[in-house]
Amino acid sequence: MRVALPLLALAMLALLSLFVGAAALTPQSLFTDPEAARLLLVSRLPRTFAAILAGAALAITGQIMQILARNRFVEPVTAGSGQSAALGILLAAYLVPAAPVWIKMGIAAATTLVGSAGLLLMIRRLPPTQPLLVPLVALVYGGVIGAGVTFVAYQSDMLQFIQTWMTGELSGVLKGRYELLWVAGIASVATWFIADRITLLTLGEERARSLGLNVPLITAAGLAAISLVTAMTVVTLGAIPFVGLVVPNLVARIMGDNLRRSLPVSALCGAILVLGADIAGRVVRAPFEVPVATMIGVIGAALFIFLLYREPRRG
């Protein structure tokens, strides 16, 4: 019941997504025009899947990150993980340009892991009485790594190259170029199996341990999931900010922090947000496209301000 409504909304958006875009494609033409069927299979369908997978993955990892960071106002993409992924892929492109994609992906995942762990270590030392310090530090941290990425790219003449990872976009998604996202999607869905354990972490480390939870192991598992998924989305589509911030917060307001209940809803809402924003980006300036990251920046910022003012501040 809880998931029925968002599921329906997502199905309708997905259908809409197949038939909206620069090249005309109508349900009827599928039967008459072989070119239309090809467009559907090679471009529209992958693009729709990519939006759904990325949205779900970003929302889930955002929610896990907020629990690990013990703060509601952080999300991986802007808090250093996203920038670390860009750094990794940049280094890979620079150092081992001929390596197969999975090696580059592995390098990006490794730098993301280091970047995310670094943030967690850093914010652990912040006073718990100052919850707003955490997003501030995360923002600065992400900004510093981002500046590092730009610097390396500038030095190595790859500025144009990194632009694709700094601003998430779906227009380049084609069959054969987005399949990593399936791994990201599956990895984030798999976190559902440790959802109870991650939920225990919300009680605080001491309470979790006194219930017999292996806190370091679960923290490491959560961190690994965040890093892997963030790296794959950034490498495939580029950075899409705000989804991991806004969606978990909105869902927690209504459903609370019991991840076993709320993760599926978060995933669906993340998918709806990204797919909806992408469709909107295709129509607002048609026949040109607005990148999905830009669209979400606008929608997400508005939602976030709404949240800040609506939600009583909790630590």
Partner: peptide
């Protein structure tokens, strides 16, 4: 930790829980 958790429970002094959990969910934990 798990073996001890089946033998000994503690209610710490700080009653602060930042998680947004329902009372029933908390007790079930």
């Amino acid at each position: 930790d798990r073996d001890l958790a089946k033998v000994l429970a503690i209610m710490p002094q700080s009653g602060h829980v930042s998680a947004r959990l329902r009372v029933g969910e908390l007790v079930e934990m």
